[in-house]
Design a protein around this nucleic acid. Structure first.
Length: 634
DNA sequence: AAAAAAC
């Protein structure tokens, strides 16, 4: 993942002819930005944009108003970074990092920033914005946040790599989390992927390993590996992405990072392990397999990180995670250092997670005006049978009007693997190059799909929730929830694939009768991110039973607050100095591909549930896809 | 109820 989707996205699309760039060397640019959470106290969410962009208020006019109470949980913050970095003169580096950075340098100039910073080119990040980010830190003896990487003393080699990657100054999550982690404290952190989160846990781990390095385990004699750090992720692709990122940070430090996940050659992974491993990035199943085969021991684990921690502890994953963390040979909490990261963190999941922690610091870092206000969220009532044609209609508009730009990617989420395949086929046959990704594909197909999508070769990807979390896919301009998820958290993660790194994006949801239980929480979410809500959805929200709200304190699941605070004090708040007047929202940052505003179809977008929402065959698409292809795929 | 995650 990287900070600057927009920059890197441009890279890939603009330079598709350039030689292959290894994944771990892509995206190595700085972004800057923040996301937000409600503070959980009486201040409504607020935000400040960098000064060159003026202030942005999530809720114009709402600064200081009490919008949410602690009890109902904060709003989720969607990270929005600003893809600006300063371009230092290139140092003479022999490796690929150098070339990649060079490419980024070029891009920097050509980058079109939809939000048009007044600063113009060469700018560099405006870190003033960081002074105004709402941060909640909760716990005892919380280490002070750092303003620079230098003052954190991460070590010479790592610092050099950080510079090479053009990370000029830490992002908010890094400012707060890194000192906490370096101090050896356990941490539960709420921060959106794309916010520099990977770096936030990688830097302290790499630094710590270098500092405590002993030649003791230099040679593996027994064939058993003893990693000192373990990073667990919920999907293979995310493991791979973190591995790539971490390798970049550990360049020439001697810190060895190995990735292990299913669906790929285990013997190959074993061979990598045999070369030595300090940091193991893994998915749960493969890790358990390797442990049970006696090839990995967790006995010497000093750092344990769970990425997307809320997912890792949800119903499907919890038993496996508990097995790894509590019933293998992992050192106990307090002996090892444990860090949990996630964007959404329901309080009951926090409660489970706290079993793994010892005297931890809870951290919610964010900026109001989070990406959800850069993501234009739209909900259309579309019955299942009309969805395909409605999708075609939208895609056709995008194509004809170029509303999303030349290299824009569209990510379409569906409910099941079968539907993913079916829709992929349907789209392909009807003139829209699409590729599907889901867990029934063999790993190589999954990787190929992702690569094809990222590169723009297949600008439409149909996905299940395998792609909803953590993946940093540059240039996704439009996320379409062809089928809405049942869980509002999944919705948040899905739409978070766009609107990243300062680029605006749009998210369109097809709401059908089946989604009634989601109405209430969806309306709340959209309200909080200042979105326009169609009347019919309002009505549904009022009449429907709140589904997932029932299990929470309130109706929000996002709990960007420490669940401990409901029973204890110990809170430390850091507030901005200027939230009060932050209200010059710039309407011009609207999405360059704002379908709702620009597309001829906008009249279709607020249909009454009872109205004829969409009539197939009513539009001349041109692509020849009027021909409905009935296949065995359905 | 689906998806993900080992062989």
């Amino acid at each position: 993942m990287s900070w600057s989707d927009d920059v890197t996205g441009s890279t890939q699309s603009a330079t598709r002819v350039v030689p292959y760039v290894p994944p771990h060397l892509r995206n190595s640019v700085v972004n800057n930005g923040a996301h937000s959470f409600d503070n959980g106290n009486s201040y409504g969410s607020y935000s400040t944009e960098s000064t060159q962009h003026g202030f942005r208020s999530n809720r114009p006019g709402s600064a200081g108003s009490s919008r949410s109470s602690r009890g109902r949980g904060g709003r989720r913050g969607q990270w929005r970074g600003r893809g600006r970095k300063s371009l230092g003169s290139s140092r003479s580096l022999s490796q690929e990092i150098f070339e990649v950075c060079e490419k980024f340098d070029d891009l920097e100039v050509s980058e079109e920033d939809g939000n048009g910073g007044g600063g113009g080119g060469g700018g560099g990040i405006n870190f003033d914005a960081y002074e105004d980010i709402p941060v909640e830190a909760n716990g005892t003896d919380i280490p002070t946040a750092a303003n620079t990487f230098v003052e954190i003393c991460l070590g010479e080699r790592l610092s050099e790599n950080i510079k090479r990657c053009k990370y000029v100054r830490p992002t908010p999550i890094q400012r707060h989390a890194i000192p906490i982690a370096v101090a050896g404290r356990d941490l539960m952190a709420c921060a959106q992927t794309g916010s520099g989160k990977t770096a936030a846990f990688c830097f302290p781990i790499i630094s710590g390993i270098i500092k405590s390095r002993s030649p003791r385990f230099g040679g593996q004699t027994t064939g058993v590996c003893f990693p000192s750090a373990l990073i667990l992720t919920p999907t293979r692709e995310l493991a791979s992405q973190i591995h790539d990122e971490a390798k970049k940070f550990a360049y020439q430090t001697g810190v060895k990072i190995v990735v292990a996940y299913g669906g790929a050659s285990i013997s190959h992974q074993f061979r990598n392990l045999e070369k030595g491993v300090d940091i193991l990035v893994a998915t749960p199943g493969r890790l358990v397999d390797m442990i049970e085969r006696g090839r990995i021991s967790l006995r010497l684990i000093k750092y344990l990180t769970l990425d997307e921690a809320d997912r890792m502890l949800d119903m499907g994953f919890e038993p496996q995670i508990r097995k790894i963390v509590e019933r293998m040979d992992m050192p106990k909490p307090g002996v090892r250092q444990t860090m949990l990261f996630s964007a959404t963190f329901p309080s009951e999941i926090q409660r489970l997670a706290s079993d793994f922690l010892s005297n931890y610091v809870f951290l919610a870092v964010g900026r109001v005006g989070s990406s959800t206000d850069l993501i234009a969220q739209k909900v259309d009532y579309v019955e299942d049978m009309d969805k395909r044609h409605y999708l075609m209609h939208i895609l056709h508009d995008q194509k004809v009007n170029g509303t999303c730009g030349k290299h824009a990617l569209t990510l379409v989420f569906v409910e099941t693997k079968k539907r993913a395949d079916a829709l992929e086929y349907w789209l392909s046959v009807n003139g829209f190059p699409a590729i599907a990704i889901h867990g029934d594909k063999v790993q190589m197909e999954r990787e190929r799909a992702l690569k094809s999508f990222k590169s723009g070769a297949t600008p439409i990807m149909v996905a299940t929730d395998v792609a909803s979390r953590g993946l940093d896919i540059p240039n996704v301009a439009h996320v379409i929830n062809f089928d809405l998820p049942r869980d509002i958290d999944d919705y948040v993660h899905r739409i978070g694939r766009t609107g990243r790194a300062g680029k605006s994006g749009i998210a369109t949801a097809f709401f059908s009768e089946k989604n009634l239980p989601l109405a209430k929480v969806l309306v709340e979410l959209m309200n909080e991110s200042n979105q326009e809500i169609p009347d019919w959805l309002h009505q549904y929200a009022e009449t429907s039973i709140s589904s997932s709200g029932g299990q929470r304190h309130g109706s929000s699941k996002f709990a960007a607050y420490d669940y401990r605070s409901t029973t204890s004090g110990n809170e430390n708040y850091y507030y901005s100095s200027s939230y009060g007047g932050a209200d010059s929202f710039d309407p011009n940052v609207a999405s360059p591909c704002d379908v709702s505003g620009a597309a001829p179809s906008s009249s279709q977008h607020h249909l009454s549930p009872n109205a004829e929402p969409y009539a197939a065959g009513q539009y001349a698409y041109g692509g020849g896809y009027e021909t409905v292809v009935a296949t065995g795929w359905d």
